[in-house]
Write a protein that binds this DNA or RNA. Structure first.
Length: 293
DNA sequence: AGTAATCCCTGGCAGC
DNA sequence: TGCTGCCAGGGATTAC
């Protein structure tokens, strides 16, 4: 479940590795994941060199001159750089039990971008929820999904005024509101739960019922939990890996997500798991009370 | 218009 | 042991 921090860590890892490298070939083993026709996808990338990397919400943008590769990892997507100069790189990792070398490409490797230096980018995705698309760089502003995204929570434009102005008078619960990418871009289930715990707000509280103090706590909690996730290399619960195949370590720093039964670090109450908007949701029932309006 | 439910996928795991 | 069925969830789509 890569969210903003995971995509940002991935981007920072890929950036120095691919910058300036030319796409030599593109292999598509699962056309279903592409939002372009296969031929179109291949022909527009081949011959282009990567000039920049960007991130917008949970979208990774690999800019290759006039064309940009837009990647969304969704649940189980992995984008790794396979360095042929390093035989110990993830592509040649040894199986922990058998000691046998694992082939760099398996049945879940769906797209391979071969680079002119002999290295390659592998897109691997067990659940096949992820999507890849080639889109004209000059038209990124008009990309339907990207242009619908809300404010970037780590951007300088994320001020309390900007945050508060999006609140409106919605009776919607705060958790699904935060998960809605058109308000704030990049929050997913993990960091949403962590932010609400940090701000001491129950996920079912109506958006319009939040006091000014609570709004300010939430405004501060969002970038705090995201920066912490980046600092620890992202959260690897199962599938997420960085560009070099390494796991993140933020899963060991979570205070509520997946912590049901453990004691709240603030008050000692056991963390509870409930379901909000069809999502597993983790709270401290003492610190995050569902007050009446 | 705004909100809520459904679907896509597979591996892991609880339960019998 | 081996099978069944459920669960994880981001976002497009559909439904209300």
């Amino acid at each position: 479940m890569p969210e903003l921090p995971e995509v940002e860590v991935l981007r920072r890892g890929l950036h120095p590795q691919i910058l300036g490298l030319t796409v030599a070939a593109v292999t598509v083993r699962e056309p279903h994941l592409l939002q372009n026709a296969v031929d179109d996808f291949q022909q527009r990338l081949i011959g282009q060199a990567f000039t920049d990397t960007q991130r917008r919400g949970k979208y990774l943008l690999l800019v290759a001159g006039p064309e940009t590769l837009v990647v969304h990892l969704r649940m189980t997507g992995q984008l790794t750089y396979h360095d042929i100069q390093r035989p110990d790189s993830p592509g040649f990792m040894r199986q922990p039990l058998t000691g046998l070398e694992r082939h760099p490409i398996d049945r879940h490797t769906h797209v391979i971008v071969s680079l002119a230096n002999g290295c390659a980018l592998y897109y691997r995705d067990t659940r096949k929820f992820g999507r890849l698309q080639v889109w004209p760089t000059s038209q990124l502003k008009h990309h339907p999904a990207l242009s619908a995204l809300g404010i970037e929570p780590l951007d300088s434009a994320f001020t309390f005024q900007a945050f508060q102005s999006r609140f409106k008078h919605s009776q919607r619960a705060i958790k699904p509101w935060l998960l809605d990418q058109q308000h704030i871009a990049g929050l997913g289930n993990i960091y949403c739960d962590e932010a609400l715990f940090h701000a001491q707000i129950h996920p079912l509280r109506a958006v319009s019922s939040l006091t000014l103090i609570e709004q300010k706590r939430l405004f501060q909690a969002i970038p705090h939990v995201l920066q912490k996730g980046i600092a620890f290399g992202g959260t690897t619960l199962r599938d997420y890996v960085q560009s070099d195949g390494q796991r993140g370590s933020h899963q060991d720093e979570l205070l509520v997500y997946g912590c049901q039964g453990k004691l709240c670090t603030r008050c000692g109450t056991p963390i509870q798991k409930l379901v909000v908007a069809q999502r597993g949701t983790h709270i401290c029932p003492t610190c995050q009370q569902n007050k009446k309006r």
